[in-house]
Simulated assay, not measured.
Amino acid sequence: MTHASPSVRATGRRPATADASGRARGARAPRSRHRSPLLFCAPFVVLFAAMYVAPILYAAYSSFFTVRRSGLGLTAPTEVFAPLDNYARAVQDGAFTASLGRVALFGLVQVPLMLGLALALALLIDSKSARGRGFFRLTSFVPYAVPGVSAALVWSFMYSSTSSPLNRLLEPLSVTIPFFDEDLVLLSVANIVTWSWAGYNMIIIYAALQSIPAEVLEAARLDGASALRIAWSIKIPSVRGALVLTTVFSIIGSAQLFNEPAVLQPVSGGSISSTFTPLMSAQSAVAAGNYPYAAAQSVLLAAAVGVVSLIFFKLTHRGDRA
């Protein structure tokens, strides 16, 4: 019969045995345990750095150079290090600043309307008295499955001054909607974006509604609260996080507006210029071979979006701290 040593009886554990190399086997476990998560995260970190961080850093680096052409333009252009020249030019470029203002106006009008529509659809589909909820949930989400370019092509046919079926329906009333008029073209683009993305945002809000405990809703009904009162006092406050998330996504999406106006440009009759949005303006600089200037415009746009998103987060979290 063997007897355990006093240290084993006191601690209840046996000392780690040493292998041939003289290191304790038990000391290897913590290292491997900490190393495993890093190995699983490594592919994401590498792809994120290569596809996201590296292009941003390269764009910022390229924006510090200025393209110079000498003589009559017969020689190849050269790039000269001038850190602030491109940024000063972008700030003084009327077409670029106008595109920033146009996108800002687009976001101020389109984002609240789209999210309001998405919230209303989510509340209607979540209502227990609603019929055909699966059908309406599917039909609301289907436009998001249509690629943005394809959706813009379909709507360009709907907006066409010669073949618009909408205007043909309004002919008996002697009404014609100039979809590409300078005063309406931004709303025409906003309509396409709303049609494409309202269903996507509705799904996010609807998923947040499903997390509300059924006991809370049942208690409100027993207290005599109407469906409108439950929606206003319980459901909408409960999906506040989803609304903040979709708003931030929509702000970023508004800044990246490109596909819809680019597709509509050939049939717009000149109301959509090549610098209609900041990304279109940057693309025009790329087409002209001025990559550093396009990079500077992109950096300014990214900085503006970051500032707006930060301000929005501060405003939405101020109520939480209060």
Rank of each mutant, 00 (worst) to 15 (best):
A4P: 15
A4V: 13
A4Q: 15
P6Y: 05
A10E: 14
A10H: 08
A10V: 08
T11F: 05
R14Q: 14
A16Q: 15
T17Q: 15
G26M: 05
H34R: 15
H34Y: 14
H34S: 15
R35M: 15
R35A: 15
F40N: 12
A42G: 09
A50D: 00
M51H: 13
A54Q: 11
I56V: 14
A60Y: 09
Y61W: 15
S62V: 12
S63T: 03
T66N: 11
V67H: 06
G71Y: 02
G73S: 05
T75C: 12
P77I: 10
P77D: 07
T78H: 13
F81R: 08
A82G: 10
P83M: 07
R89E: 13
A90Y: 04
D93N: 09
G94I: 05
A95V: 06
F96Y: 02
A98I: 06
A98N: 11
S99P: 04
L100Y: 08
G101R: 04
R102P: 02
V103W: 07
A104G: 05
L108E: 02
V111D: 04
M114Q: 15
L117Q: 00
A118H: 01
L119M: 09
A122M: 02
D126P: 02
G132Q: 03
R137F: 02
T139K: 01
S140P: 07
S140T: 08
P143I: 00
A145T: 11
P147M: 07
G148A: 10
V149E: 05
F157S: 09
Y159N: 03
S161K: 12
S163M: 13
P165L: 08
N167P: 03
R168T: 11
R168N: 11
S174L: 14
T176Q: 13
I177C: 00
F179C: 01
F179V: 01
F180D: 06
L184G: 07
L186G: 04
L187D: 09
N191D: 11
A198G: 04
G199N: 01
M202A: 04
I203N: 06
I203C: 01
I204F: 12
Y206E: 05
P213Y: 07
A214G: 12
V216A: 08
L217H: 04
L217G: 10
L217A: 09
A219K: 03
A220E: 06
R221F: 00
A225E: 03
A227T: 14
S233D: 10
I236C: 01
P237V: 01
V239H: 08
G241C: 06
V244L: 11
L245G: 04
T246Y: 08
S250Q: 07
S254F: 00
A255T: 09
L257T: 04
L257P: 01
F258D: 07
E260T: 07
E260M: 05
L264I: 03
Q265L: 11
G270C: 04
F276E: 04
L279M: 13
S284T: 12
V286D: 06
A287V: 12
A294Q: 07
A296I: 06
Q297I: 00
S298Y: 04
V299F: 00
V299T: 05
A302E: 02
V308Q: 01
I311V: 15
T316M: 11
R318V: 11
D320C: 08
D320A: 14
R321S: 13
A322K: 14
